[in-house]
Amino acid sequence: MDRVSIVVSHGSLEGVYPALIMANGARMEGIEASLFFTFFGLEPIIERRMDRLQVATVGNPAMHVPTLIGMLPGFQTLATSMMKKEMEKLDIPPVREFLQMIHDTGAEIYACKASVDMFHFKKQDFWSGVDDIISVGEFYEKAGDGQIIFT
């Protein structure tokens, strides 16, 4: 495999990390990689939000926490900080550092134009590592004959 284009459509911590790990892992194997952030997946590349992503504790059966407990004030913050601690042990960096690292490997980082317009974001709302805001057509063009993974 020569090239992989990974779409990120979720804005929770657990929704974002798999894509980041896969993009970085692709580069480690010598595979070209790009990330395309769309819909709520824009959260991790919005400058003022990227350091505040949280784990979803409600509506997530795999958390094994009853919904009524998952919605208690502070519970989501607690679950998030616990997960971040576990990830740090595995050498998984925080979102900002991870994105910078992925960008430094030569992977490209794009925001989806339709989502940017829908949420009324401006170029200056984005983290500085974002290479461009592109349409879905341009995304396919860049993906070329490579694999596309939707997360």
């Binding site: 580069r27 194997e29 010598g30 430094d104 490997t105």
Partner: peptide
């Protein structure tokens, strides 16, 4: 050595 330089020194997968 930073990530960017690692990829320059060992293209296509520096750790590997």
């Amino acid at each position: 050595v930073d990530v960017k330089t690692l990829y320059q020194l060992f293209p296509k997968g520096p750790a590997k």
